[in-house]
Design a protein around this nucleic acid. Sequence first.
DNA 1: CTCCGGTTCT
DNA 2: AGAACTGGAG
Length: 290
Amino acid sequence: MSIDAEQLVSWYRDAQRDLPWRRPGVTAWQILVSEFMLQQTPVARVEPIWLAWIDRWPTPSATAAAGSAEVLRAWGKLGYPRRAKRLHECAVVIAGEYDDEVPTDVETLLTLPGIGAYTARAVACFAYSASVPVVDTNVRRVVTRVLRGQADAPARARDLDDVAALLPDDATAPTFSAALMELGAVVCTARAPQCGCCPLTHCRWRSAGYPEGTMTRKVQRYAGTDRQVRGKLLDVLRDSSSPVTRAQLDVAWLTDTAQRDRALDSLLVDGLVEQTLDGRFALAGEGEIP
DNA sequence: CTCCGGTTCT
DNA sequence: AGAACTGGAG
């Protein structure tokens, strides 16, 4: 059981989106930055921020030198700001321990902050053309449908090996991986798949008559959660170039004071916010000398 | 397994 | 009102 690499790759060569991090001349670090930003975040929202970001900080050392507070500010409202902190930490390590060059092997990449199983392989594959399986939610969905005939399925430890077995045994492997992700992103989508535009001639899901998915997803609310409160608190800190008082933070969320306190505490624990000696609050690294 | 943003589309 | 979005870490 496999996926026709020829069909998929030739479709990709013609139909791929013109994304800025896919253009020639983009460095491994800049691809790494795009992968951090794309974690759980749609392409359309990442694009403008990535363009401004690499123009301002094109290298790990430039990013490290900027300081974590400025990096958190530039991250803006992209979401999951812990990613920004980890990206800055990543820059510090690469600049300091790897001579400003992104490591090429998956094992080393996995040791860096914010880089997990997906991002390590995405960087190795897309930045260094390594023939490694790149498995994100899109790839998992495509493989589940085409090869297993199910609309969706939970992630399994086997997924990595299964996708590795699908890779063509030649130099087109990285393109095949990009194409698999692209197919999941624009054709074989979660909600309204465009099967009429699918380049694959064999698909078990189609043969089976598109059976419904059975996965019960968790609701992941946002309004009224601690995450929203954390966002409100960070809004205040991003907009201030100097530390703010507790009272200035308190007005950001008056609905539930216990929740507000819990949110602020979690930001301190995550290292996104720091308290100054006089008891005020600031973005982490605000006081550092750039 | 849970938590962690914020926007957009349906 | 839900769901989806190129995940990682505790």
